[in-house]
């Protein structure tokens, strides 16, 4: 067992452990912090796969953006120290059973599937190559989804403002 494998198993245990804590703890603020740890672990997994740019995106967008947004909304809507009511046994048991069964089924499929061997080419995920492909209008270019996503972000931004805006009493009538 070399160092790379040990590091992979450590990262995997970290991601899964913090993920389980994120979905099972009874304090909502702690759940969001466990989620943050889990997302940092996933960024570490991307570093382990030599994908520095994706890891940077993961940290900037998820850890720095989405988790902070979630924490803000917790402070706006909840008393952060309160315990959430424990879920009913009649709900957790079927959910755990269904998840475990589906997990066992999928892992069984994965272990018996032969994915074939990778081609021997070197994986080039440099930012330069990604940027060129992102603005390439020709074959294998991603300029159309790039523009579509920028429109989506604009629409989401306006949509958030419209949805969360306070409607004054006299205007509502």
């Amino acid at each position: 067992m070399n160092a790379q494998e040990i590091i992979f198993y450590l990262i995997a245990a970290y991601i899964l452990g913090t993920g389980i804590m994120a979905v099972s703890t009874h304090k909502i603020f702690r759940a969001s912090i466990w989620l943050l740890f889990s997302l940092v672990g996933i960024a570490a997994l991307y570093f382990w796969m030599d994908l520095e740019f994706i890891a940077a995106i993961q940290i900037v967008v998820y850890v720095g953006g989405i988790v902070v947004l979630i924490i803000f909304s917790i402070f706006l809507t909840q008393k952060a120290g309160d315990e959430m009511p424990a879920p009913l046994k009649s709900r957790t048991l079927p959910a755990a059973f269904a998840s475990l069964f589906a997990l066992a089924f999928t892992i069984n499929l994965l272990l018996h599937h032969n994915f074939g061997s990778a081609s021997e080419m070197v994986f080039d995920s440099s930012v330069e190559r990604m940027g060129l492909a992102m603005l390439n209008t020709g074959d294998g270019g991603f300029v159309l989804p790039f523009e579509a996503v920028s429109m989506l972000l604009l629409a989401a931004m306006i949509g958030c403002i419209v949805i969360a805006m306070k409607v004054k009493k006299e205007e509502a009538q």
Binding site: I15, L16, G19, I20, A22, V23, S24, I28, A31, S32, L35, S38, L39, Y62, I66, I70, S73, I74, T77, Q78, M84, P87, R91, T92, P94, A95, A96, A98, S99, L100, A102, L103, T106, I107, L110
Partner: peptide, 27 residues
């Protein structure tokens, strides 16, 4: 990744608070 997906699915099925549902979807 499969394990992580079904951890998220378990959270989605058991949680009843909208923010924690959102966290499960992120996982």
């Amino acid at each position: 990744s499969t394990s992580l997906f079904f951890i998220g699915a378990y959270g989605f099925l058991t949680r009843r608070n909208l923010i924690t549902l959102l966290m499960a979807v992120e996982l």
